[in-house]
């Protein structure tokens, strides 16, 4: 076995870094690619595997189902409990020229092997543990509450993400049960192996869930917010989650109640649907996630721009359980900017 280590993977995965890695490793001619690290390292391995097999520029593969065929086998080994990239059909890269993050999604991007060893997360610092865990929480909630599609024979052929379904639901609930049990402890006491195990299981399960079902409004809004504020993805999606849940609640009463019961809450469906949002907000507050887009550094005059840009992520908008138009998106963004969740209550 011959190995070559490429250790210059940068946070947020700028597109030049990926082509740089491919160029540097061309002579080595790898036949298997390991990604060991957080989301960026695993996504690096996934993107390199595409370029090794199909060549061209990553720009050729932006969007859904643009990769023409199988890629070099990838082995993904996460060292944070969050992105779930070890099992998902997605890679997110930064197109520095365009100044935006871009997603590539295709079943061919799914790693051949995922090895999730919770001991790999024992040295993950508290801030990164919080942001990663919050990302997993958002994956689990958005996939479990995703819109169910009309079931047709070509649903899974034409789409990478297919909406809420009975199989992804099982993984979503497994993730949520463990996140509410362990995330606070994992942030407070990083050496607690039991909490680290539960969080790594949770992020893996959340990845299994959203890799099929997809995510929704919180992810749509985070894209422009992240581009504007250069804040971590997990922080943005988590901050937005309670606001998006408040907007979605009328459509999601039974979904929220189901999650509420799994995490140990009790009451009627209606009561649980409110309690769950409070529980999510309180968990995020306890682990240090900011509460408003203002705190995140979004300029006040960029609120409507954020909402309009978020509408451009059509796949995510359509996956949201409650129908979204630009006015609804503006209402969510404004509420998240000022911290006024009650403004979305219905």
């Amino acid at each position: 076995m011959k190995t070559k280590v490429y250790d210059s993977t940068e946070a947020d995965l700028p597109i030049e870094g990926i082509s740089g890695c491919v160029t540097e490793c061309a002579d080595f001619n790898p036949d298997v690619v390991l990604g060991i690290g957080g989301g960026s390292c695993m996504d690096m391995a996934k993107c390199v595997a595409v370029l090794l097999k199909h060549g061209g520029s990553l720009r050729d593969y932006y969007g859904e189902n643009k990769i023409p065929g199988p890629v070099a086998p990838v082995i993904a080994v996460p060292t944070t409990a969050g992105t779930g990239s070890e099992v998902t059909p997605v890679a997110v890269i930064a197109d520095t020229e365009r100044g935006t993050k871009v997603g590539i999604s295709s079943p061919y991007l799914i790693p051949r092997i995922a090895v999730c060893d919770p001991e790999m997360t024992l040295t993950c610092p508290p801030g990164l543990t919080a942001v990663s865990g919050a990302d997993a929480l958002t994956h689990a909630i958005e996939s479990f509450t995703a819109a169910a599609r009309e079931v047709t024979p070509d649903l899974t052929v034409k789409n990478v993400f297919v909406g809420k379904n009975v199989l992804s639901d099982t993984f979503g609930l497994l993730a949520l049960k463990n996140i509410f049990k362990a995330l606070r402890t994992a942030v407070k006491d990083g050496k607690n192996i039991e909490a680290r195990e539960q969080m790594m299981l949770a992020s893996l399960a959340a990845g299994c869930a959203f890799g099929a079902a997809g995510t929704a409004a919180a992810h749509a809004i985070q894209y422009p917010v992240g581009n504007e504020t250069h804040t971590p993805h997990g922080m943005g999606v988590a901050l937005l989650m309670p606001y998006v849940m408040e907007f979605n609640r009328p459509t999601c009463v039974s979904c929220f109640a189901e999650i509420g019961r799994v995490i140990g809450l009790s009451g009627s469906d209606e009561e649980l649907s409110h309690k769950l949002i409070d529980e999510v907000a309180s968990l995020l507050k306890d682990i240090g996630i900011p509460v408003t887009l203002k705190e995140l550094g979004l300029p006040e005059n960029k609120q409507d721009w954020t909402a309009e840009s978020a509408m451009g992520a059509a796949r995510l908008v359509n996956n949201n359980p409650r129908k979204l138009d630009v006015d609804a998106m503006k209402a969510i963004t404004r509420a998240a900017f000022s911290g006024d969740r009650a403004a979305l209550a219905s």
Partner: peptide, 25 residues
């Protein structure tokens, strides 16, 4: 999934390839 399972990585990699590129930071 499991604590200590990273020790299987070498054996697993050898089952599917002979020239392994490791992307990390």
């Amino acid at each position: 999934f499991g604590s200590g399972q990273r020790a299987a990585l070498g054996m697993m990699t050898a089952q599917i390839g002979s020239r392994a590129l490791i992307c990390t930071d």
